[in-house]
């Protein structure tokens, strides 16, 4: 056993993944019960990408994310309460109830935030990491995005610029096989294609199995170390999409009704980790219990939090209230 797959690491990774999984399932139930509004994009099944990468980051490393970003936020240090309050639209939410599910921002945790425009967060992380280096700060950026981002011009533009200016940024492509309903296989071919494509640009690129969080962690550890020396790198994490694109997306129109569920049964990173570390089952059970308690406690706590006031709706459009109004 190398130092990277010690029992301590296993428990830490497990705990982070379970928090994400249980929060996502909890949000699903809250929506079904009519206690949350809007939509959300579940990251169930993709936890290993967020956790495996974020566990090797420092608190002030800067992360950008996507519309499917609850996992990234939680893994980078956004609290369960802050996230839930945000999804309830409350003033104590991580974005003050102004952002909702797709616009979580928490720079104090190094979470620049989600960008709900596909590929839009890539230059944020790369530019922020570069800007921080310009100011002598020893941090890196990490941008999470999906396979769909590779269909955007910004994907290539940002990678070229990151290479040209040596931005210390790790680009993490979560290839879940579907850009909404468009199969990645049809567009790009087999998993790993994104990695090969980027490697051809002269950027260090790796592919890793997202059902194995220890592998993700190990590869991320090595790539993050490389990125800290002042270069961009790319990591393709092969995952699957266990849920529909978004809450009420009629996915049965474009794929078999049970395909997400079936994929998760065979590739669940959480149960895989449990199976791989059988000696820790008691500790894992204990974590399950703690997380469940945490979530119900936090839900009760934040739900009674501050309701947003209508007269606060125009705050922070600008730094200084310009005094120009609609009247």
């Amino acid at each position: 056993m190398s130092e990277l797959d010690t029992a301590g690491n296993g428990l830490r990774l497990y705990r982070s993944m379970v928090i994400i999984r249980e929060v996502e399932l909890h949000i699903e139930r809250l929506h079904r019960a009519g206690r949350m509004a809007g939509s959300f994009h579940s990251s169930v099944g993709q936890e290993a990408a967020a956790v495996g990468v974020c566990e090797v980051l420092r608190p002030d490393d800067l992360v950008s994310s996507t519309h499917r970003g609850h996992g990234h936020a939680l893994a980078k240090g956004v609290t369960v309460g802050g996230l839930l309050a945000e999804l309830f639209g409350l003033a104590n939410g991580v974005s003050g109830g102004r952002g909702g599910s797709m616009h979580l921002h928490h720079p104090d945790s190094g979470f620049l935030g989600q960008n709900a425009i596909v590929a839009g967060g890539m230059p944020w992380a790369a530019g922020a990491a570069w800007g921080a280096r310009q100011q002598g700060r020893d941090i890196i950026g990490v941008s999470f995005f999906g396979d769909g981002a590779a269909s955007q011009g910004l994907f290539y533009e940002t990678l070229r610029l990151a290479k040209l200016w040596n931005s210390p940024c790790l680009f993490v492509c979560e290839n879940n096989g579907l850009a909404h309903s468009m199969p990645a296989e049809r567009l790009f071919g087999d998993p790993g294609t994104h990695c090969r494509l980027v490697a051809e640009h002269g950027i260090k690129a790796e592919v890793v199995d997202g059902s194995d969080v220890l592998s993700v962690y190990k590869v991320a550890h090595s790539l993050v170390g490389y990125v800290r020396t002042g270069y961009p790198a790319f990591l393709e994490v092969t995952v699957g999409r266990a849920r529909a694109h978004s809450l009420n997306d009629p996915e049965y129109e474009y794929r078999d009704r049970d395909s997400g569920k079936n994929w998760l049964e065979e590739n669940d990173p959480i149960s895989s980790l449990r199976k791989g570390l059988p000696d820790l089952s008691e500790e894992f059970d204990q974590i399950d219990l703690e997380v469940s308690t945490l979530i119900s406690h936090e839900t009760t706590r934040v739900e009674s939090g501050d309701i947003n006031q209508a007269n606060d709706a125009l705050r922070d459009v600008y730094t200084v209230d310009s005094g120009v109004r609609n009247d």
């Binding site: 102004r98 952002g99 620049l112 935030g113």
Partner: peptide, 8 residues
């Protein structure tokens, strides 16, 4: 600035 509730 707005959607981060003034954090950014």
């Amino acid at each position: 600035r707005y959607m981060s509730n003034g954090q950014l």
